[in-house]
């Protein structure tokens, strides 16, 4: 039996961390991850009436997040923080504060991802999100075989870059 379609708010709540992780990677000053996050939320909300659920909400949201972030990075779309600010979305730093070692390791991973080309970056993000190749193919528009071939090479590049950094 088909499950009833979730509301937009439920989809957003369930996927907010995924979106934020992608936005953190693509945000380049002066654009903040929060600006990109709000941009993704806005575009997801606009697309939601047309979302029929065939591809799964995760796949659907990954497509929107990657398209929005890449457009911002390539400056195809100007992200103006004053214009995108939605007061109803609040970002609060976690009370314990960021763990320094963890943050350093994240920065190392971020640097390695940044050293890849744009196309490989998007693939590696989806790989780190633990999407199966079939879903990565749906998000990117490549064939599953093509994704597999590319991922083999990208994983090697990523591992070669990160291994010395993580010690």
């Amino acid at each position: 039996m088909q499950q009833p379609k979730k509301t937009f708010e439920q989809v957003l709540e369930d996927n907010k961390n995924k979106i934020y992780r992608i936005c953190r990677i693509y945000a380049i000053a002066p654009v903040e991850p929060q600006d990109l996050f709000q941009e993704v939320v806005y575009h997801a909300w606009k697309s939601f009436p047309g979302f029929k659920g065939q591809s799964g909400e995760g796949t659907w949201l990954y497509k929107i997040a990657l398209n929005v972030c890449l457009r911002a990075k390539m400056k195809l779309e100007k992200v103006d923080s004053k214009n995108v600010r939605l007061e109803s979305i609040q970002f609060m730093p976690v009370q314990s504060g960021p763990d320094e070692v963890r943050e350093e390791r994240y920065q190392a991973l971020r640097d390695c991802i940044a050293s890849l080309n744009e196309s490989d970056q998007s693939l590696v993000i989806l790989y780190l999100e633990e999407l199966p190749y079939k879903e990565i193919a749906q998000v990117t528009g490549l064939t599953e075989n093509h994704v597999a071939v590319k991922m083999k090479r990208i994983r090697k590049m990523l591992f070669d870059c990160i291994t010395p950094k993580l010690g």
């Binding site: 709540e13 109803s88 609040q90 970002f91 609060m92």
Partner: peptide, 9 residues
Amino acid sequence: SSEIERIKF
């Protein structure tokens, strides 16, 4: 990496 901020709607 998403645990540095809590997002509230």
